[in-house]
C-alpha cells in the first residue's frame, strides 16, 4: 500500500463520515458543519487527483461561501427547538432507496469494463486557464450571466413584501 493510497483512504473515510453526519444529524447546525467536513475532504480528494485548482475552488466556494450562506439561512429560519423531527415519515423507504442506489451504482462500476487508466499527472493552472478562456469562453460567459440572474432573482424573492 502506497502512502498516497493510505492518505486517500483516510480522506475518503472523512468524506463519507461527513456525509453520514450530514444526513443523520439531529441538529441543523451540526449537519451543516458535517457537510463542511465532507466538502473539505472532497477538496482533499481533488488534491489527490492532481487537480489543485479545483480543490482551491472547492474550499473557497463551498467552504467559504456556501456553508456561510447556509448558516445564515438557518439563523434566519430558526423556529425554536421544539419544531419536531427534521426527518420525513418516509425515512425507512428512503433508506431502502439509498441502499438500492448504492447497489445499482456499485453494480454499474463492477459490471463496466473501464478503459485502462493512464498515469495521472497534475493539471497545471496555465493549461486549465487557457482551455477555460479559449475553448470554453462562451459557456463561461453564459455561466457568469446565470450567476448574475440567480443573484438578482434571489434578491427579488427574498426581499420583504412591504418594500415593493
Amino acid at each position: 500500500m502506497s502512502p498516497l493510497l493510505a492518505i486517500y483512504i483516510v480522506v475518503s473515510v472523512m468524506a463519507v463520515a461527513g456525509g453520514l453526519g450530514t444526513v443523520l444529524a439531529r441538529n441543523v447546525v451540526y449537519a451543516s458543519l458535517f457537510l463542511l467536513l465532507s466538502l473539505l475532504s472532497v477538496a482533499g480528494i481533488y488534491v489527490l487527483l492532481f487537480s489543485p485548482f479545483l480543490a482551491l475552488v472547492q474550499v473557497l466556494i463551498y467552504g467559504g461561501a456556501i456553508i456561510i450562506v447556509v448558516l445564515f439561512a438557518l439563523m434566519l429560519t430558526r423556529q425554536g427547538d421544539e419544531t419536531g423531527s427534521l426527518d420525513s415519515p418516509q425515512k425507512p423507504l428512503a433508506a431502502v432507496a439509498g441502499l438500492a442506489a448504492l447497489g445499482v451504482l456499485i453494480a454499474t462500476i463492477v459490471v463496466n469494463k473501464w478503459p485502462p487508466s493512464v498515469d495521472p499527472e497534475p493539471v497545471g493552472f496555465e493549461k486549465l486557464g487557457a482551455t477555460l478562456f479559449t475553448q470554453w469562453a462562451v459557456p463561461f460567459e453564459i455561466a457568469s450571466v446565470l450567476l448574475l440572474v440567480a443573484l438578482i432573482g434571489a434578491i427579488v424573492i427574498a426581499r420583504p413584501e412591504d418594500s415593493q
Binding site: 451543516s32 472532497v42 447556509v70 426527518d87 420525513s88 423507504l93 428512503a94 433508506a95 451504482l105
Partner: peptide
C-alpha cells in the same frame, strides 16, 4: 457512489428544506 447514495438518502429522508439542500450539495 457512496457519497451519492448518502445524498439521495438525505434528500428522501429529510423534511426540513435546508437539510434537503445540504443533501443535494452532497
Amino acid at each position: 457512489a457512496v457519497l451519492f447514495s448518502l445524498g439521495l438518502f438525505g434528500v428522501l429522508a429529510r423534511r426540513n428544506a435546508v437539510m434537503i439542500l445540504l443533501a443535494i450539495e452532497l
